[in-house]
Every structure is written in C-alpha cells, then in structure tokens.
Amino acid sequence: MSEVLVFGLCAAVVAGLGLYGAIVDPRPLRKILGFNLLGSGVFLFFGVVARRGAAAGFPGDPVPQALVITGIVVAFSATALAVTLLLRFFETTGSSSLRDGAAADGARDTAES
C-alpha cells in the first residue's frame, strides 16, 4: 500500500502547485492550466482514497473511481468553455488581461449586430 502514501502526497503537492499557478500567473490561459493541475491533484486524491478502499476483490473502491470519471469530464467541459471565452475576449478587445478596465483599453468592441 506504499503507493497510497506516495501518490497521496504527490496529489497534495500537485494541488498546491495548481493553486499557486492559478492565482499568481496573470495570463488567463495559465490560470486555466493551473485549474487543471489543481483539479487533477484533487482527482488523484480520489484515486488514493479509492485505492485505500480496496476490498471484495476489487483493486479499489469503485465509487470514488466513478466520481473521478464524472469529474474529469466536467473539468474538460469547463476548460473548453473557459478557453473559448478567453479567445473570444481576446479577439473582441485585443487584450487578455483580467485587470479592471483592460477590456476598455483594447480596441473597442466591434459590436456585431
């Protein structure tokens, strides 16, 4: 069961890294990457918890394993939505900064109507 300890600590560190990246880096795409790292750290923790629950001939508790599959799909759709939103924001304003007023700094919106 040493893998529980090793990968559990790995999961915690990855989650911390993701948090740091998502907060510190001002580039939205890097924030999205940070969010994905954070998410995968949390998912990995699900896997560790599942592994600890190995019983009845299963290599792991199937419930947290199934939850992770749902979680990965949700995280991917979140990433897709965020990336599309970011690209559209960049195309519309010429900037990808999240600062207040950055939207107004860039080229004024082209107002499709």
Partner: peptide, 19 residues
C-alpha cells in the same frame, strides 16, 4: 450581449467559480 467588458466579466466569474 458579446461586448468586451461583459466577456471579461464572464471570464473572471468562470475562472474564480471554477477555483
């Protein structure tokens, strides 16, 4: 409405809510 400011607002909302 697709304006630049609201796109930025939505992006901030989404990223923070995801955290």
């Amino acid at each position: 409405d697709g304006r630049g400011e609201t796109l930025q607002a939505a992006l901030r909302y989404l990223l923070f809510a995801l955290l």
